[in-house]
Computed example of a mutant assay.
Amino acid sequence: MESALTAAASWLDFIGVGPWSRGSTLVYPVANTLHLLGLVMLVGGIGIVDLRIMGLWRALPAAEISRALTPVAIGGLVLMIASGSILFAADGAALARSAVFGRKLIIVTAALANAAAFRLIWGAHMTRWPGTAPGAARAMAAASLLLWLAAGASGRWIAYS
């Protein structure tokens, strides 16, 4: 994975994103703020859906909560990818060698795979859940919440590694 990240860092430097993100007093802090906003949107949106599927707020239809908040979470993810690319470009060579950054990417990949699997397996069935989701759906929701929180925590730990 390190060689792929090193190649990505070199490419971002070549197209000018790296020098732009390092050379401005505003780009990095704005990208960092947007990355945090994306995390809040992602975990706030999908976290509420996950908590509902896990059993909270049983009187509220899970499918309706998901329909309302999943687009917020997806918007947050898109914002995080865009801003994260700028943050990565600022110090890509060092991040490519960071074990914490590597773990963060693995956690994000696992969270995305869990989300895709959940949609594939349970997405069409959510409207039929009375108050309680099946145990496997609850387990996937708990995994989702833990994985996204771990991804956010890993992002913070990068600064201390």
Rank of each mutant, 00 (worst) to 15 (best):
A9I: 00
S10C: 00
S10D: 12
L12N: 03
D13I: 02
F14C: 00
I15L: 07
I15T: 11
V17P: 01
V17C: 03
V17I: 15
V17R: 09
P19L: 09
S21Y: 09
G23D: 08
L26W: 15
Y28C: 04
A31T: 01
A31R: 04
N32A: 13
T33F: 14
L34E: 01
H35T: 02
L36H: 08
L36G: 06
L37I: 12
G38K: 11
G38F: 04
L39M: 08
L39F: 02
V40M: 14
M41A: 15
L42F: 08
L42E: 10
G44Y: 14
G44P: 00
G44M: 08
G44Q: 14
I46F: 12
G47H: 10
G47V: 08
G47R: 13
G47S: 14
G47K: 15
I48V: 14
I48T: 05
I48F: 06
I48Q: 04
I48D: 01
D50R: 12
D50C: 05
L51M: 10
L51F: 14
R52G: 00
R52N: 03
I53P: 01
M54G: 11
M54F: 05
G55M: 13
L56C: 03
W57E: 05
W57P: 00
R58L: 05
L60D: 01
P61I: 13
P61G: 12
A62V: 06
A63I: 03
E64Y: 03
I65M: 08
R67A: 14
R67M: 07
A68W: 14
L69M: 06
T70E: 13
V72E: 07
I74H: 10
G75F: 11
L77D: 07
V78K: 09
M80W: 07
M80P: 01
